[in-house]
Design a protein around this nucleic acid. Structure first.
Lengths: 333, 333
DNA sequence: TCTAATTTGTGCGTATGTATG
DNA sequence: GCATACATACGCACAAATTAG
């Protein structure tokens, strides 16, 4: 067996780096190949008088880069002949939504050629959330996580390497150690309403359909605050059924099902959208530009969010970014 | 004797777990039944180069779960037909598409409470496709795979337990060993056109935007066949740009981007949709009902597809089902 | 009845990776 | 960096039950 590990006790390089470099060098010059078993932690630590932890730290780094794989009870094996491994991104979303398509696609584009993305959904099931994260440990180079409505997820997420975790969605104090791209649902709704206040003047009443559950409850606060400050009549319902939309009302809907329902009602009643009846939807997608002549939306720019994520992943700097929403004005308001 | 044990040397799963899973699979799909004698420890350890203890560890685990019983000097026997395992479904789609939402959601609903679904996308990258499948081996109870445009995937997919694999999309002769829910893109388009032929009479020309690449090429055949048989003028473009839509034309578009583009052009030109200008889109989604007063679509029922999948997964029977498309008539034609 | 082969079952030792304090 | 406990994997020796010849 040719000697693959070389440690210089007086080098400026930390020992774990020397181990990593030795192995990478062995791969590059062909001494070691994909599938080869490499010396065990015990062997190396004994031969070079290193702590087991030091060797394991090096091996873990290589594992998270996808260069090594480990088999408990057997040993470490080379997973590839490439030493500059691609990014491998773990995404854990709340649920499969049409508007996540843009986010996902722009992230895939941002990583173009340099890695791949695997996407999961916890569907608001904490058990699923937990086990998906636990099973992902050590298998990815970056972790993008949307904890949604879960509280106290720190003890779960903290199992992952802190600087490789990116939290999406809300800003939670318990998760401030990680990089975060968040939306402030209350401010987003409020700001969007303020920016559209001249358009809203023609309506006598604002109605917000908030079905509760999965939808961010903070929006209700933003909605009520705006209506109170600007002295507008308003109502919050959890469903359209039983609430007949009237003329000179502007309705705000979060779910696409409600949007379709509302568009159909407006068509049936022959309400002129944007004139005598307003519709605003959350989360912009391609098709909303074409729905009923164009639906005004309140939405973050998911494509930019994906681009930001891509940058953060490559540039390795921790940051907390608010991804603001905008009112995207179309004919329906 | 059918092969019931499957061991992947480089799986993340420990070998004793793989043995356990293999046997549970065999019970679930009926290969093994209550009272059956299973291969001896010695046989398995010899065949798969495993330690006797590893095999016995797996058997002991199953014994403590009440799934196996042993008789010293004779062998191990199945004690029950129940494995008490949750379904864990692996889905490998081609790409993240809005219209897959329905499919995914209806499958999740069909499995309600009895398991979970993990979804991946290969984005038409064969390397990704391959490694996602390899890494999934032994970790799921069912595998739903959409090979899309890939050829010669049999050698990859056949690593999975044949009767736990469900192929979606096209019917490929090489994959006839597996359960398949397929679409016949040529017939689907042709049949939909035939069923809408009276609606099509008012148009002088049919135009199909087929951007190639990811979209099924078979559609072009169906389109041309219909137009020839019914003696209609037709054209196939790969993009809208540079091709000015004219009055009394019906345009067929696959991508939502093209759909939005076309709706906007029609609005700009003041073409009356469904009267003097027709638009038909593929793959029905919730919002298309509301786009421009309702877009006529050619689409399979994704919700039913998901329900069918759920049934197949629970009922454990191999089947080849064609999931036909229908013309869903709305105002745009 | 004896024997040989095969099976389960038990005990002990060794080596490896993993997790925690 | 060290110590400890634990999980996984492999190997060997031997006892006891079963079966086939």
């Amino acid at each position: 067996m040719k000697k693959v590990i070389n440690i210089n006790d007086h080098s400026v390089l930390p020992k774990y780096r020397q181990i990593m470099d030795s192995l990478c060098f062995a791969i590059e010059n062909g001494t070691l190949k994909k599938g080869d078993k490499i010396p065990s932690i015990n062997q190396i630590s004994a031969e070079f008088n290193l702590s087991r932890d030091t060797v394991m730290y090096a091996f873990n780094e290589l594992k998270s880069k996808g260069i090594l794989i480990s088999q408990p009870g057997k040993g470490y094996y080379l997973a590839t002949n490439e030493t500059h491994r691609d990014e491998k991104v773990f995404i854990l979303f709340d649920e499969f939504n049409a508007f996540k398509e843009d986010l996902y696609n722009s992230l895939v584009t941002a990583l173009k050629g340099r890695g791949r993305v695997e996407i999961f959904f916890h569907n608001y099931n904490l058990k699923t959330f937990k086990s998906l994260i636990y099973e992902s440990i050590g298998r990815y180079t970056s972790y993008i996580i949307m904890p949604a409505s879960f509280d106290n997820t720190f003890h779960i997420i903290s199992r992952l390497p802190t600087d490789r975790v990116f939290i999406l969605d809300r800003l939670k104090p318990e998760l401030k150690n990680f990089s975060v791209i968040y939306q402030d649902f209350e401010m987003d709704f409020y700001d969007a309403l303020v920016s559209g206040r001249t358009l809203l003047k023609k309506y006598r009443k604002l109605v917000f359909i908030h079905s509760g559950g999965k939808e961010p409850a903070e929006r209700v606060n933003g909605f009520e605050r705006f209506c109170n400050e600007y002295k507008l009549e308003f109502q919050v319902f959890n469903s359209i059924d039983g609430n007949r939309p009237g003329l000179y009302e502007a309705w705000f809907v979060a779910s696409d099902r409600h949007l379709v329902q509302l568009v159909k009602i407006a068509r049936e009643y022959k309400y002129k959208l944007g004139k005598k009846f307003g519709i605003v939807s959350f989360n912009d997608t391609l098709l909303k530009d074409a729905v009923a002549g164009g639906i005004t939306t309140i939405s973050t720019d998911f494509a930019e969010m994906g681009k930001n994520l891509g940058d953060m992943i490559f540039n390795q700097k921790k940051s907390v970014i608010r991804n603001p929403s905008k009112l995207i004005v179309r004919k329906s308001l």
